[in-house]
Design a protein around this nucleic acid. Structure first.
Lengths: 344, 344
DNA sequence: CTGAAAGCGCTTACAG
DNA sequence: CTGAAAGCGCTTACAG
């Protein structure tokens, strides 16, 4: 453990005060060109990096933002998703010279929530979080504290929260319409995500809207939980006497579609000949299965990047006019719906 | 943004000095029972949480540890892996009242490495990192700085580094022997991970050792990169004229085995009837495919947990006797090798 | 224009 | 035994 180099050490080497060295390092006009260069050289030679605690204490900020992962969402959102979010936060964080802290929203030994400690202790200047189940108090209490918070996702109950989101309902509607309008599907099934999560609700709603406005008679829903296994289970439920009474299935995410694949295959049901299927997310798997899966690309990394930028804005400018953003989504057409993409 | 509650505010409410309040809160015997209770009550009422910067500056530590993700390993280790590592670090970190910082090892604008800034700025007290490619200077320079560092994995070139690892060579040897001894495989293929990563090298070595000591004549190796796609590619290479000249395939990880599945299936090659296959990792997918995949369970979360504990030791006690640990691994027998597990 | 004090919040070593 | 100063490293507002 090399002993840390302080500003004082840098200043001493040059023969100025720490205050002068500090100003020199940030290019203050009141420091002469010559001493500025001398200080910079000394700092470089000594490997000076400002002490975070000293700087944070003085500047009254943490130089860090936190990603708080709701316990209840660990099993609903994929590891892929969180890694995309994390990496999306990285570049804006680096640009603001801030660290990224990861925390769950567990209760601490002291009985308060981890995110509260993080903020109250000023270990982070703001928080990015994702939806938990809709009846979880967590998000409400998080937003209720008035701290700088940016949420990822759609929060109809929190109109004042700053949220970066995609229109799950519209996207789900769009991909369902593709099945109906472009492929002539008439007997539809939706394998939903947990319906106590907004994402599950919205994607189901889009499916139902599309079916209703096209006058589709068969538009069933089986509730899953976004995990691969539940996609498989849904298929076992849906297959009656070895046959599937649907010609199109809209899965609420790719993982469930992937889980469905072997079950359909084992039942001798071909994709897309016997049933056309679509997924949602496009975090990686959908591209790699056979057939590859037509899906909605959720730009998780971009969402998180914009969320981080927005959070830094919020932190810098205080509570300001709601700057929620809804990002466009696009469908990626692959073979599972019966399309024959160019690049295939 | 509620204005933070300081110790001074707590002290003022009780009518003692901040110093006394500080001692009261940590149960110093020199504070009377009565005032201790009064201070605790006031702290609770005001929602006092110690300011991290103030405490860190005074205590000369960061109250945080960092997971540094080498750029070069993002594509070799899975998102699953990193999320397991992150969650493994969570509990020890909370127990030590420390934050978990996530960083890549990118270069900063100032030209030094991110991990150096983190340590030199004392934003983290120590680092946990995973292997990058073996010719990457990164790990060497990280360890060379003498900072508290715990590495995840096997580092034959760094005998003095503190590492928490599993014996990839032994595990790979063991699962290969299972194919040979228990299932009578004679014509073996290993689909390796990148051979510029130690993990790839060790898992290949275990395979070769097992084959050699059993006197197996066919023990081929195709190099992949741990991604699903490269498993599929390896199968396309291995299948000659529609047939596979192997009766057993040892994949260096589950993802590549998963990628191989559809290619084998499309070629009409049955598992395990025509070829027995095994994976490595057991982070989730291997359990869910059809057939499910016999694999080595890598306890990534436990590894990271122990790494974090070890790191806190290292931080507290300074550089001390190497406390590297090698964890045992276990094979999970499923259907892809021809076993018929009880729970299936 | 520039030198050097003051103070962010905390905790411990010191003085009484 | 206890009160209150000193100081961690930094930066800006102030005094000269």
């Amino acid at each position: 453990m090399p002993k840390p180099v302080t500003l004082k050490a840098v200043a001493a080497r040059v023969g100025v005060t720490p205050a002068a060295a500090s100003m020199a390092l940030k290019g203050s006009p009141r420091i002469s060109e010559a001493t500025r260069e001398a200080v910079e050289l000394a700092a470089k030679e000594l490997g000076y990096v400002p002490n975070a605690a000293g700087r944070n204490l003085r500047n009254r900020h943490a130089g860090a933002i936190a990603l708080v992962v709701p316990n209840s969402s660990v099993h609903v959102f994929s590891h892929q998703y969180f890694m995309h979010v994390l990496s999306g936060m990285t570049i804006p964080a680096a640009a603001h010279d801030a660290q990224v802290i990861v925390s769950t929203n567990a209760e601490t030994a002291s009985g308060d929530m981890a995110y509260e400690r993080i903020i109250r202790s000023q270990a982070a200047d703001g928080i990015i979080s994702t939806s938990s189940s809709i009846d979880d108090e967590y998000i409400h209490s998080l937003v209720g504290t008035g701290l700088p918070v940016v949420l990822l996702g759609n929060y109809p109950d929190l109109p004042d929260a700053v949220t970066i989101w995609i229109d799950d309902t519209a996207a789900s509607r769009q991909i369902t319409e593709h099945l109906i309008a472009d492929h002539g599907c008439q007997r539809l099934l939706h394998v939903a995500g947990s319906l106590d999560h907004q994402t599950g609700i919205d994607r189901r709603q889009g499916f139902l809207d599309a079916a209703a406005s096209a006058g589709i008679e068969t538009a069933d829903v089986i509730e899953g939980d976004m995990n691969e296994e539940s996609g498989a289970a849904a298929m076992r439920t849906a297959i009656v006497d070895g046959a599937l009474p649907y010609d199109g299935i809209v899965f609420a995410n790719d993982d469930m579609a992937v889980g469905a694949l072997p079950v359909l295959r084992d039942a001798g049901i071909r994709i897309p000949e016997d049933v056309r299927i679509t997924g949602f997310d496009d975090f990686g798997v959908a591209r790699l299965t056979t057939p590859d899966i037509t899906t909605i690309r959720v730009p998780a990394q971009e969402i998180a990047g914009i969320a981080a930028e927005t959070l830094f804005d919020l932190i810098a400018n205080g509570r300001h006019d709601n700057s929620s953003q809804r990002l466009p989504v696009s469908t990626t057409y692959r073979h599972s719906c019966g399309c024959t993409p160019d690049n295939a």
